[in-house]
Amino acid sequence: MAAIELRNIVKVFSDKRRGRDLLTLDNIDLDIEANDFVCLLGPSGCGKSTLLNIIAGFEQATSGRTLVDGKQVERPGSDRGVVFQQPTLMPWLTAIDNIAFHLKLKGVGKAERYDRAMEFIDLVGLRGFEHHHPSELSGGMNQRVGIARALLMNPSVILMDEPFAALDAQTKLEMQEELVAIWQKRRCTIVFVTHSVDEALVLGNKIVVMTKRPGRIREAVNFGMPRPRDITSPEFNDAKRRILSLIREESTRLAQAS
């Protein structure tokens, strides 16, 4: 049984102001295995974030079935950790309180909360900053808090919606390396949305290329290049060429159709 099963997902947004419907996701069918690192790759507006929101339970598919660990997704829940595009931390809580927020909601006492959160503070390299508020931390540090917060819930899957898009190039590289290290250490299933071919190839062991509006799956490519991955190596470039040609074919097809 796959960790995530998407069966014939269709999502139609009704644009009430213009009185028409917009087909955003068209018949998405995808299996994600446990401990996979899957990158959903596609241009802006292809519905990749919508697909992630459907798995998270923030949005409902118009039709089709979404199963996580064999259970139908109906609402958001702590079995699916989400890392948002913006850190989306509670600004009135310190880093450690943000990370342990899930435990607070469950009624766990402060001492135990902090004890368990410290492990994740260390994991994302924020020791010394645990009592800082989000406004006192940099964008990259806040995103680390967001990742730690998702990991602490020990979810069966982690859903990430372009979490590094707002970071500068150097911080982005560091964060990508750390994320891979965390994934290797903790063995979890990650679904990572991105529009960057390089990012998808650095991170994923399975890259799902999506088409532009309506979002369909163009092809799911397995990419088993050993890590750490050298982004200047011939192997990396071959893979990149292949992904780019998939995207290019798609644009030509669209151009001819119009």
Partner: peptide, 9 residues
Amino acid sequence: LVRAGAMMG
């Protein structure tokens, strides 16, 4: 923030 809260249960 509400979504994040829902995600954390």
